[in-house]
Design a protein around this nucleic acid. Structure first.
Ligand SMILES: [Mn+2]
Ligand SMILES: [Mn+2]
Ligand SMILES: [Zn+2]
Ligand SMILES: [Zn+2]
Lengths: 144, 144
DNA sequence: TTGATTATGATAGTGATTATCAAATTCAAA
DNA sequence: TTTGAATTTGATAATCACTATCATAATCAA
């Protein structure tokens, strides 16, 4: 429950970039790691303030950018305009199956689909670097 | 003048919604239909002003919303935050292969991928309604 | 301990989109 | 054809998520 590995990664990143240490960043990092949800910057700010009420939203945005650069987090945009952040380190690549009724979503992976994407890109002369697949539908519960 | 079919669809939509007819909406509709590009609201506004310089950006946004509701257009969000609009009526479903260097993109379709998405969703208990697949890579030109 | 450098939080600014509103336009009814 | 209630418009204000600015505070190598 200490996230030593992630903290080490963040420390190295900060050092290599010639940045300095700060308690705020650690608070934000640990709060982010503690939840497995896909949070917005604002939601994370609300959570972090429980531990350190003085932290400003600007610092949350700044730290989230660092977390993405260091490979600990990644941006996620589900259909609507909102930007969310999910864990990246130690999490396999996955896509999202979103329920259009209740908004819940499931993380999925289909290696065949991944392979076919590679093939498709190659056929078009592209060197594939990544992809985002969002699938929209109605979940089991909402069909009841 | 072309696009009779699209104009008919728009007219029916406007009538059914109890809205009124306006010259501005027609200017916006025809300008949108005339280009096959994926435009932002602002880009469309710039184009429409060549025909009718008095048209305001608010009316472009309002009309774009109507075009989407009537099934003539659909929103497109490529990775970054920008919102673009593409033709929807008479256009087959397709996905996008985006070049991370030059920003150009290709429209693609792989029926196998589409089928596998169905299968994946079913396996998770979802009834699939749609999806968005964005693939990022480096295009032929940019690899030169 | 020092002091150059970086980090912070408050706040101003930005860009895209939406809301507001008075004036103009549409269109069904007279 | 005229009328007038309802809708539409363009200008502009407001909003929202995010970034830039800046004075002050914290960090850390020397
Ligand atoms: Mn996820
Ligand atoms: Mn397209
Ligand atoms: Zn659901
Ligand atoms: Zn390219």
């Amino acid at each position: 429950m200490a996230f030593e590995e992630e903290q080490k990664i963040f420390d190295s990143f900060v050092r290599e970039k010639g940045l300095k240490h700060s308690a705020q960043r650690i608070d934000i990092l640990l709060t982010f790691l503690k939840t497995e949800k896909h949070l917005t910057a604002d939601e994370l700010h609300t959570l972090v303030k429980k531990k350190n009420p003085a932290i400003g939203i600007a610092t949350v945005y700044r730290t989230l950018k660092l977390l993405c650069e260091s490979g600990l987090s990644s941006e996620l945009r589900l259909g609507d305009g909102s930007v969310r952040y999910e864990h990246f380190y130690g999490h396999e690549h996955h896509d999202h199956l979103v329920c259009i009724k209740c908004g819940n979503f499931t993380e999925v992976l289909d290696t065949e689909i991944e392979k076919l994407q590679e093939r498709l890109a190659r056929k078009e002369g592209f060197t594939l670097q990544g992809h985002k697949l969002l699938m929209y539908g109605v979940c089991k519960k909402c069909k009841g």
